[in-house]
């Protein structure tokens, strides 16, 4: 229980900081809006192809705007060597990881809440699918992305040019999750048989659990090296 309380303390510190500055979230929203705007000009909204690109665009804006936030997540802890301050505190090192996962997940979810409706509006897309299934797929997919992304952000933060290193490490690892997420989103948005989407959702849930367990236990070793 203590590990969750410590994780929430760390997450709340990051979130209240973000509420004050709005630096990361502002940057992420602007980036995702620009991507949507550019793509809305590239594809004609009256064309049927729009339907085919929307699932991919949902995840494209999530991943690339999310990477902007992930990059800052641990770099901010290097100012005044705050990470050492956290490590010298009587907490489990994994609570630092869980706290960061929680904060990053909330920030990326807020960006999605703003950017996905904007995407639907600019593409003149009428949502006819099952909204709850759509939300579930987005949440499970985003959570998996944040689990792996936060871990790799911690790993990359110690390296030179960490901003460049993170996408290089992260994107290949995310491939199975993103394939499942895009397929699941497509099925729900096209209002097809939901049982097909459930199979993709199960794959995503398995990915999340596997990587959450691995990152949770391995995080301590990253901290030892920082």
């Amino acid at each position: 229980m203590s590990i969750l309380i410590d994780a929430w303390t760390i997450a709340w510190k990051d979130l209240s900081n973000e509420l004050k500055t709005k630096q990361t979230i502002g940057m992420m929203v602007i980036f995702s809006s620009l991507v949507i705007l550019v793509f809305s000009f590239a594809f004609d909204p009256t064309n049927n192809m729009v339907k085919a690109v929307i699932p991919g665009l949902v995840w494209l804006i999530t991943i690339f705007s999310g990477i902007l936030g992930l990059n800052r997540s641990f770099l901010s802890e290097h100012e005044n060597d705050c990470l050492t301050g956290l490590r010298s505190a009587p907490i489990d090192p994994s609570s630092i990881y869980l706290g960061k996962v929680l904060a990053n997940f909330i920030v990326v979810t807020v960006v999605q809440v703003i950017s996905i409706p904007v995407l639907f509006i600019l593409f003149d897309y009428r949502f006819l699918g099952a909204i709850l299934w759509f939300m579930l797929i987005v949440i499970v997919g985003t959570f998996g992305f944040i689990i792996v992304g936060t871990f790799l952000a911690a790993l990359a933060a110690n390296a030179k040019n960490s901003e460049m290193l993170l996408p290089v490490l992260l994107l290949p690892l995310l491939s199975p999750l993103m394939i499942a997420a895009v397929q699941g989103t497509r099925i729900v948005l096209e209002n097809q048989d939901i049982s097909d989407a459930i199979s993709w959702l199960q794959l995503m849930a398995a990915y999340d659990l596997l990587f959450l367990a691995a990152c949770f236990f391995l995080f301590e070793f990253i901290m030892e090296g920082s």
Partner: peptide, 30 residues
């Protein structure tokens, strides 16, 4: 770790937080 108070080369303090917020944050962790 709870028995040790460590003052390092760096302050371990968050620039965006106020002194009170910094102390409250570390107080919760300790």
């Amino acid at each position: 770790k709870r028995k040790i108070g460590f003052l390092g080369h760096e302050s371990f303090l968050y620039n965006t937080l106020t002194p009170m917020e910094n102390l409250k944050f570390y107080g919760k962790l300790f």
